[in-house]
Amino acid sequence: MINQGDFDESLFDEKAREKLKLKLEQSLNQLSAQIIKLRSKYGEMVARSKEYFEEVVQALMNGDENRASIYAEEIAEIRRLAGIVIKTQLVLEQVKLRLETILEISDVLGLLIPLISLVAEVEDEVRGVAPEAAESLRELASCIEDFTSISGAGEEVIQVPKELDAEALKILEEAQKKAAERVKNAFPDVPKLSEEEKLVYSYISASDEELDLKRCARELGLDEDQIRDVLRRLEQKGLIQLVG
């Protein structure tokens, strides 16, 4: 049982410490592998989202609003899941750093306890998108919990300072914030195009040559200032990239 209060590391004998160290090393290896997998999964999600983004644009150009909506909904779902994946990755990286610190400085075992709070907060959420990562977290939590019984503490109650629980919450909040920022930057908003934007984008897409502003304006029946304004809006929506 883990309550608030003062953490007493004297409860842990040397044999228990060695057993814990071995388990933590195993957990560290598992977490490292899961972090690599999560990075790969996130990259796949970003790539798939970009493909669907192009499908949305093409559907809008063809006037197929229903098809565009279908792909837009898929992008929204991928974005939601990607947020969970990147948050999990960030939390695992924090846990990994904590384990490395504990293994280097064996007399700070109190640093283990906040990890239980981290696991409890993210485990269920993670299981839906990365079950192997969730299982690694569960095994780590079990390792920490079991340690209290193999340490020779008997029925003693391990007391944990309130600031340690607060630290776990802070890590989660920071991970959530960073995850939201990364997802926002990696996943463009689904575009909604005006008739002028559709017209100009279709014109650009149909040509392999560098855009001739005067010619474009003449052929589309718009003035050059209108074309410039449309080009800026298309760039803001992530559809084109202006050079120079």
Rank of each mutant, 00 (worst) to 15 (best):
F187G: 04
E181L: 07
Y201Q: 03
D208I: 07
Q226I: 06
L99T: 01
R48D: 13
E224M: 12
E104Q: 14
A72E: 10
S194P: 05
V129E: 15
A82K: 07
A16C: 02
S136Y: 04
V91Q: 08
S40F: 04
V122G: 02
Y42L: 08
L239K: 04
L222G: 03
A33M: 12
G152M: 00
P188L: 02
V57T: 10
L99A: 04
A47I: 10
I158Y: 02
L213T: 09
V119L: 05
D107V: 06
A166F: 05
L137G: 05
S40N: 11
D64E: 13
E235W: 06
L222P: 04
P191N: 03
N185W: 09
S10L: 03
K237M: 03
P161L: 00
K177T: 01
I158N: 01
S202H: 01
E14I: 02
K37W: 06
L90I: 06
K177M: 01
V122K: 02
I35Q: 14
D124H: 07
E65I: 05
D8S: 12
V129F: 09
I227Q: 04
K41T: 10
I35S: 12
G244H: 10
D212M: 11
L115V: 15
R228H: 12
E125M: 03
E18N: 10
E77R: 15
N29G: 15
D189E: 14
D212Q: 14
M45Y: 14
L103S: 15
E196L: 05
P161F: 00
A130I: 06
V108Y: 11
A59L: 03
S205G: 10
S106D: 14
S205D: 14
F187K: 02
I2Y: 15
Y42F: 10
D107P: 02
V190Q: 09
S49T: 09
L81F: 09
E14N: 05
R228Y: 11
G110N: 13
L164S: 07
S202C: 04
A130T: 08
S205W: 08
K50W: 01
A141R: 15
I116L: 14
L199R: 11
F7A: 04
L137A: 06
V56K: 08
A134H: 08
I102Y: 04
A217C: 11
A68E: 11
A141I: 01
E174G: 00
D8L: 12
R182Q: 15
A47G: 06
S117C: 00
E123M: 05
E173Q: 08
V91N: 07
L220I: 02
I227C: 01
E156R: 01
S205H: 09
L213W: 12
E25L: 14
V108I: 15
S202M: 06
